[in-house]
């Protein structure tokens, strides 16, 4: 009996020893010499592997940071200036200040605003629907409502609102990684400058049709009238293809344009409630 136990112990020990030797030899022979700073940088990055930096994951971004001479054009939208600052200290580089951003949905085509003209019955995938046809409303620029952006969001910062049939971006959770921007086949989602208290003013429409058809398709469409353009004191608004655009970096949140818009296509969000609301086009924002 004892000899059996002894034999087992010796055999297993020998096996273990042999395996250890093999592992050691292999580890030595195939050792990859790597810059130790890559690991250090990798540690200060958020580790979400969202790809918001434009590279395949945090590790790849760390390698790029270590290799590059300056941080110009490189940014981790999730970690923001904090993570980039830490990385700059490790690598002894100059940090580049980058404004924090936030994703914004530029469509307000709820069933109430934009009448449904057909019923989509295919695979619940925006790209499939987009390739198939113009969509369930007469507006073939607007949101298709299949939720590709929600699926693409790795931070649980989006959900589909069953009433508006539009995705909703949760300001506190959005890190502006840009995954939803890439996922949307209609380029409705835009990354804009994140203002104090997440205040936002933007044209919530991407319809490039002329005023008449645009308005017919959706009552809160941008009709390209240009009134906002004239009233803006900071030259922040431009007009192209019957569609106005507010540059979030030039905009000073004066809210003059929103008061002027005849269709209510300009949304103002997270501002304190004004005493007098401009009549006629109250905008309900579900958030």
């Amino acid at each position: 009996m004892s000899s059996t136990v002894l034999f087992t112990v010796i055999m297993l020990s020998l096996l273990g020893l042999l395996a250890a030797v093999i592992l050691y030899v292999v580890a030595q022979k195939f050792k990859v010499v790597e810059d130790p700073r890559i690991d250090l940088v990798n540690e200060v990055l958020p580790g979400a592997n969202c790809g918001g930096c434009g590279f395949t994951g945090c590790r790849a971004f760390s390698e790029v940071l270590v290799r590059s001479d300056s941080f110009e054009g490189l940014n981790c939208p999730v970690g923001g200036s904090e993570a980039m600052g830490k990385a700059a200290v490790i690598l002894d580089r100059q940090p580049v200040a980058v404004e924090p951003k936030i994703a914004v949905l530029r469509c307000n085509g709820t069933p109430e605003h934009s009448q449904r003209t057909s019923n989509y019955d295919g695979a619940m995938n925006c790209r499939v629907a987009h390739a198939l046809y113009g969509g369930t409303t007469a507006c073939h620029y607007g949101c298709l409502g299949c939720g590709d952006c929600v699926t693409s969001c790795k931070f649980d910062a989006m959900y589909m609102d069953p009433v508006t049939q539009l995705p909703v971006i949760i300001d506190d959770k959005c890190v502006a990684c840009g995954a939803c921007v890439k996922a949307c086949p209609r380029n409705i989602i835009e990354l804009r400058k994140r203002n104090r208290k997440d205040r936002k003013i933007y044209i919530s429409c991407v319809n490039k049709d002329k005023g008449g058809p645009a308005r017919k398709a959706c009552i809160v469409a941008c009709i390209g009238c240009g009134k906002c353009l004239k009233v803006c004191p900071y030259d922040a608004i431009t007009m192209a293809d019957n569609l106005a655009f507010i540059d979030s970096f030039k905009c000073k949140l004066c809210r003059k344009c929103a008061a002027e818009c005849p269709t209510g296509a300009i949304l103002e969000i997270n501002f304190p409630v004004k005493e007098e609301k401009p009549a006629g086009h109250a905008v309900t924002e579900v958030n």
Partner: peptide, 8 residues
Amino acid sequence: NILNVSPS
């Protein structure tokens, strides 16, 4: 009628 639309 609001028609149903789906791919083939």
